[in-house]
């Protein structure tokens, strides 16, 4: 059924968010955000911690529900349970079962996505090879290093060959060599048609994305390619551009009372 659906609506963008607001108690975490991410794009969501990146990611996947506004993924209005099949998710923390082996973790999540025994075995081999964990899968996750855990999380997110891949801070706490290889992998996935949405607070990572959304205090302050953002602000780097844009937002007309 999902195959049919994806074919009939293949022209739809990966994610469309319009006028979305989300508050927790008194605090407005996401404030009137609109954003469209076309298919096959490597999209980066850049912002300091606490800016609302994770909340926005949860809203665009339908894990969380907006108070106001609408969200759709691949042309289907969210939240909808069936859509949880169509994206892969890598959470900020390594959500792994420490007592279990790498393979047991992969088997478990694969079965939740409804993969049958045979294709699951095949996908485990493929994704494990992709993140270079093939010979460690029998070990319990307790014995994994921080980088190995991140790679295992990535492999799990890729198991069911999702059309959209959502990664919340995928490179936190991993070494530069590994970070580079993860980014190389994301580029390849995007080139092969997977929409990749990545959150980060590392500025130099942001420059590797096709397009960037800069987020601050729940507002999307700019959405464009890294080069255009730098050019439009007349700054020398994304970092400076972010600071310049934040100040514009702070002193600009659209800012609300604090």
């Amino acid at each position: 059924m999902s195959v049919l659906q994806s074919e009939t609506v293949s022209a739809e963008p990966a994610v469309v968010i319009s006028g979305v607001t989300r508050s927790f108690g008194q605090q407005r975490i996401i404030d009137d955000v609109s954003l469209t991410i076309p298919r096959g794009e490597l999209f980066g969501l850049l912002g300091p911690s606490g800016s609302g990146k994770t909340t926005l990611v949860k809203l665009m996947t339908g894990i969380d529900k907006a108070d106001k506004g609408s969200v759709s993924m691949l042309g289907v209005p969210l939240p909808k349970l069936e859509m949880l099949h169509r994206f892969g998710y890598m959470a900020q923390s390594d959500a792994l079962y420490m007592e279990l082996s790498g393979r047991q973790n992969m088997m478990f999540f694969g079965k939740l996505y409804g993969l049958n025994r045979q294709s699951l075995r095949q996908r485990i081999d493929e994704t494990a090879a992709l993140v270079d964990l093939s010979e460690h899968l029998h070990k319990p996750v307790t014995a994994f290093s921080g980088g190995m855990k991140r790679r295992l999380s990535l492999a799990i997110a890729l198991l069911h060959q999702p059309e959209v891949l959502v990664l919340d801070e995928p490179t936190v706490g991993i070494d530069p060599v590994l970070r580079k290889s993860v980014w190389k992998e994301l580029k390849i996935l995007a080139k092969n048609g997977t929409t990749v949405i990545v959150t980060t607070h590392v500025m130099d990572e942001a420059e590797k994305c096709d397009r960037l959304g800069l987020i601050r205090d729940g507002h999307l302050i700019a959405v464009d390619s890294p080069a255009s953002i730098i050019a439009s602000t007349g700054c020398g780097s994304i970092e400076e551009a972010f600071i310049a844009l934040s100040q514009q937002q702070r002193f600009g007309g659209q800012h609300d009372e604090s």
């Binding site: 998710y89 900020q92 390594d94 959500a95 939740l112 996505y113 409804g114």
Partner: peptide, 14 residues
């Protein structure tokens, strides 16, 4: 607390 529930709820499990 380990974050696996959040991860679990990002899968199609009811």
């Amino acid at each position: 607390t380990s974050g696996t529930l959040e991860r679990l709820l990002a899968t199609p499990i009811r």
